[in-house]
């Protein structure tokens, strides 16, 4: 008990001392709070200030300046020698070509614009034979069995697939559906197509088609469902089955 009080007392003492300027790793600070990350400000290295962090008298946070900073040009002012070097933000929406977007409250997120941020998904399931007349919801490499919508808009789902056909007919047909938010196999979903392919039993066939999802909202989920129909089973070649997803 005595020990605790002593420690608390010391800590209160610590925070009740007015410290006008605090620096770490340097004897020559600027601003109110200064960290010389590399402890190299006394050297002649051309990069010596690039590892520094400063809070100036305006309360601006300044990182990575090439010369010793004295005042930030913005509340958060970050400089880097290299593209992609200033800011990293991981919110689940990041991806090649995603763009920084904001909402009414100023919260930022990575989102997709027309002409930017479209991506490719590979499939991880179904792995077994798909039976005639049964519905199969695809599982994607994003570990989800749907495509999450992070931006209001209309989208294209492009399917490139190969599968081994087993059956007596030299032709197969199957349905491709997009469902929004829940898979209701009693309906045709928000878009669907039946594709017929010539094939041979025990051999692979391929097909390629495009589905569309109009006027989606943030938070919507898009499911891709396949159903082999014209007699025979399909076993997807997952390495050759790919979905492209983009905004239109």
């Amino acid at each position: 008990m005595k020990k605790y009080i002593t420690l608390l007392g010391l800590s209160l003492l610590m925070s009740s001392i007015t410290i006008a300027q605090v620096s770490i790793n340097t004897k020559n600070p600027q601003g109110i709070f200064y960290i010389d990350g590399g402890a190299d400000n006394a050297t002649t290295s051309a990069n010596r200030f690039k590892n520094d962090v400063m809070v100036d008298a305006n309360g601006s946070l300044v990182l990575g300046k090439a010369t010793q900073p004295s005042v930030g040009l913005a509340k958060v002012d970050i400089t880097s020698d290299a593209a992609y070097g200033t800011l990293k933000m991981v919110d689940g929406g990041e991806g090649d070509g995603m763009v920084l977007l904001g909402d009414a409250n100023g919260y930022a997120r990575w989102g997709m614009l027309k002409g930017s941020g479209g991506y490719k998904l590979s499939l991880t399931a179904p792995t077994g034979a798909m039976a005639t007349g049964s519905f199969y919801t695809m599982t994607f490499s994003n570990k989800l069995n749907y495509i999450p919508i992070t931006e209001q808009g209309s989208y294209i789902v492009m399917v490139r697939m190969s599968a081994t056909y087993t059956g007596a007919l030299g032709r197969t047909g199957g349905y491709f559906y997009l469902h929004k938010n829940t898979v209701n196999t009693a309906t045709m979903g928000i878009d669907s197509i039946e594709m017929y392919m010539e094939c041979l039993s025990g051999k692979k066939f391929s097909t390629y088609t495009v589905l569309r999802a109009l006027d989606l909202a943030v938070g919507d989920k898009i499911y891709l469902v396949m159903k082999p129909q014209t007699a025979g089973t399909w076993t997807l070649d997952l390495s050759l089955t790919t979905v492209f997803f983009y905004r239109v």
Partner: peptide, 8 residues
């Protein structure tokens, strides 16, 4: 713009 890592 983001890259695959979320760096911009």
């Amino acid at each position: 713009f983001s890259d695959t890592e979320g760096r911009g």
